[in-house]
Design a protein around this nucleic acid. Structure first.
Lengths: 103, 103
DNA sequence: CATAAGGGTTTGTATCACAAACTAGTTTGC
DNA sequence: GCAAACTAGTTTGTGATACAAACCCTTATG
């Protein structure tokens, strides 16, 4: 019974990783607008993904305006793949319970 | 962007529903042993599933020993199906982010 | 009688998602 | 030149909750 990775399982972070898995680089603003999050909320989710080693942060400037962008790491890619596998296992694994005789 | 049903999304409850979706009836003890939960924990998860209308409780006796069994409702079946659909949408929906020019 | 086991409820706690407030720098209006 | 508004992001506060531990009640077991 493989465990669910809670870091990934949180819906917001799952969406973030799903996006990053197809994009190579996406910035702070983009996530705020597409996911409809408050900046604070996004910031803390990104912290968690970073601390888990699933995303890398790239801080730079767009002219004089700061820009923070995120990229998925290999570990993140692996973890996400494993996550989907674990979910599929749950989805499939049913059908052998005790048959409790009703009353 | 369909929302994730948090009642179902919790891993323990997801496993419970996955089991119930293939079994018609399963009892308290069974879940405790197969999922490795404390009784208190299982009890509160079942409360939530019941309050959401996703499972029905059948309290009875096996001789003089009380037996509590759970059955999935139609609403539960529907909600679980929707849940998997929502997850698949996240899994598939990637690939159109802003291309932020790196640095 | 004592201990265990089924079937819980109550209580305590650590975590965490989220928003609101705040910081820091930048452009715009006058 | 200075205030108002905006971009970008961090820090702080709070309410919800997953989980275990402790407790309760009843029935078997030794």
């Amino acid at each position: 019974m493989t465990d669910i990775d809670r870091t990934i399982h949180e819906p917001v972070r799952l969406r973030i990783l799903a996006i990053l898995s197809g994009v190579d680089l996406a910035d702070f603003k983009f996530f705020v607008t597409t996911l409809g999050l408050s900046k604070g909320n996004l910031s803390s989710h990104m912290d968690k993904l970073e601390q888990a080693g699933y995303v890398e942060v790239q801080k730079g400037f767009n002219g004089k305006i700061p820009r923070t962008a995120y990229r998925m790491t290999d570990a993140g890619r692996k973890a996400l793949a494993d996550y989907w596998i674990a979910l599929d296992q749950i989805r499939t694994a049913c059908t052998e319970a005790d048959g409790p005789t009703p009353s």
